[in-house]
Design a protein around this nucleic acid. Sequence first.
DNA 1: TCATAGTGAGTGATTACTCACTTTATAATC
DNA 2: GATTATAAAGTGAGTAATCACTCACTATGA
Lengths: 173, 173
Amino acid sequence: MTEKQQNILQAAGELFATEGYYATATSKVAKKAGVSEGLIFKHFGNKAGLLDAILQDGEKRIKLAYAFVIMQTDPKEVLRKTIELPFSISAEEYEFWKLQYKLKWELKEQPQDKMQPLYFSLEEAFSQLGYEDPATEADFLIQLIEGFGAALLKGQFADPDKIKALTLKKYGL
Amino acid sequence: MTEKQQNILQAAGELFATEGYYATATSKVAKKAGVSEGLIFKHFGNKAGLLDAILQDGEKRIKLAYAFVIMQTDPKEVLRKTIELPFSISAEEYEFWKLQYKLKWELKEQPQDKMQPLYFSLEEAFSQLGYEDPATEADFLIQLIEGFGAALLKGQFADPDKIKALTLKKYGL
DNA sequence: TCATAGTGAGTGATTACTCACTTTATAATC
DNA sequence: GATTATAAAGTGAGTAATCACTCACTATGA
């Protein structure tokens, strides 16, 4: 991976996240990355290939974020870390997650569900904690934190800390 | 409002909801609506004007949906109706809501927050029910049902009824 | 010396939008 | 009630700009 290749990935990631995939012209990606437009197609084949490369890179980062949750042994810690997940998005990860959320609505074929491993981990945790319906509880919590992630990225929360505290409290944490 | 004008609105709504706003060409809207492309610009000025018309129409429908919740006097009914909201989206409203959600991510300037009246209603309900922090509870629940709406529209729930039942149970309903 | 990295002008297709024009509906006048 | 006037509805070919993408070419490093 050359430096210019990384510049393209970086520029495309930012533009796709802010402007959207369809609304971003490859000419603008090239300009922002400081390369010729032709180079994009030499390296990534076409615009979709460029998106794929970004998505593949993203999948690694997402799996890493979830791995930290899944590796917890204490079921209560699994819940705690899951809930804390959307609230701990750092400034430099912000655009990356915005892109992930955005693409879920923009693309026709959904990039495969990266939540699957987390789901199993949560189901197990709820089961151990004696919840009545662990499967539905896992579904519920995943959707809750997905909603929180969306709200945070769109800046819809007046006070994120209060929401986080309330959520933890609701799960007795 | 002529028949052709309504056809344009209908066709654009469907295409924007499935393909996205930027990815939909006005020529395709015209073709689907069975009118000349020029007519779109005669009636709506430009593509953004067409979107505005759809959005304005949508705002009425959204306010109507919320009004039914807000008019409830019993605080428990306010919560129940709020929770039931995303699960009661009918087939013909499906595309409309999909468009609303999609545009939240696609557009730079957010169409004003239509949840505001619901927020006040929820805050009041939680207050009456003796919840400790009604404002945060309202924020929490709104984000929960927004997340549920998104999940339902993307078909991410294995069993929506179970999620609904669990949610109602969590609020003692 | 040879493969890979990188360029930039050029391609046809498609984009949002315009405009001179025709058709249709409404209503006023004879 | 037929005729006429007029505004609005509707058309479709045309436009400049932009789109994703190509290709003949040069630069560079092993």
